[in-house]
């Protein structure tokens, strides 16, 4: 029973990590319907930016965090302007391969600068956040992750629901030509959504970095784990991403705990195939799949 509970807690925390890291992906897909294969690299860039500022330049944590946010916002803007904008209206395969190419480029640069080692942040989270419940422990980083995840969900839920930019984004995602004809500045929406997504990615990257240490390979492989999470939750649903992340996290830890550790790595993809066959729009996605 205790084993079960520990697995449950581990799964939930892993799931929240997946959920938090999937948010930026959903942001980009929701407004520009681009499948971003460079997602893991965006996470890593944010994490490393924070690493350089906090551990190497020894800035105060708040300042380092703020500069990282501004920097990644600008990065998202530049990436969209330089690479994605020339491809508006091009075929899907080209957009996908462009993000794959970007992923390879970013990874190469980061490996060049930081190498393949694991780096650590200076400790700054208060220890008082950690919870203990019987024999089961929840470290403070996970509590922080949980809080951040919920905060993200609320902020972006409100942003998409009420702010004018959020409504523009939803309209562009829904029907691009119609949004254009109603005077929505579609290109600006794309640029803004990439910028916000890069910012969200940087936040998730920092959270992941606090828990596991900052490593290029690890963070970029999380970019591929995001696919089962978002498909399960529905590609365009932020709440779905959270729940999808939790389900995948639980599934992974329980498979690892009860069946076999090697199956753990593929079980998300097996679920992914089943979900795609049965319910391609995910648990909470918009039902508009075509069957031709």
């Amino acid at each position: 029973m205790e084993f079960f509970l520990q697995l449950l807690v581990n799964g939930l925390s892993l799931g929240f990590l997946y959920a938090v890291s999937a948010l930026g992906f959903v942001m980009i897909f929701k407004s520009s319907s681009v499948l971003n294969f460079a997602h893991g690299e965006l996470l890593a860039i944010g994490a490393f930016m924070f690493l350089v500022l906090s551990a190497w330049a020894k800035l105060p944590i708040i300042l380092a965090f703020a500069i990282t946010m501004i920097g990644s916002f600008a990065l998202g803007f530049v990436v969209e302007r330089l690479f994605l904008r020339p491809l508006i209206g091009e075929a899907l395969i080209e957009v996908i391969m462009l993000t794959v190419g970007l992923a390879i480029m970013f990874k190469g640069i980061m490996l060049f600068i930081f190498g393949g080692d694991i780096h650590d942040y200076p400790k700054f989270l208060p220890e008082g956040l950690s919870m203990e419940w019987g024999a089961i422990q929840i470290p403070s980083v996970y509590v922080a992750t949980f809080v951040i995840g919920i905060l993200f969900l609320i902020i972006f839920g409100l942003f998409f629901k009420y702010s004018s930019q959020g409504i523009y984004m939803r309209s562009v995602a829904d029907n691009q030509p119609a949004a254009l004809s109603l005077g929505v500045h579609v290109k600006r929406v794309f640029a803004l959504s990439w910028a916000i997504a890069a910012l969200v990615c940087a936040m998730s990257g920092i959270v992941l970095g606090i828990i596991n240490g900052v490593n290029v390979h690890e963070l970029s492989s999380i970019g591929l784990k995001v696919f089962p999470v978002v498909i399960l939750g529905g590609l365009d649903s932020i709440g779905g991403a959270i729940i999808g992340g939790v389900i995948i996290g639980l599934l992974e830890t329980f498979t690892g705990g009860y069946i076999s550790t090697s199956l753990r790595e593929v079980i998300p993809y097996i679920v992914l195939v089943i979900i795609l066959m049965v319910r391609p729009y995910g648990l909470f996605g918009l039902v508009e799949i075509e069957r031709v």
Partner: peptide, 20 residues
């Protein structure tokens, strides 16, 4: 050894430049 990752970078750059 430090230059080795730049191989990947150039590979990615080639893909991106061709697509654009």
């Amino acid at each position: 050894i430090t230059i080795a990752p730049l191989r990947e970078f150039i590979f990615g750059l080639a893909i991106v430049l061709f697509i654009i």
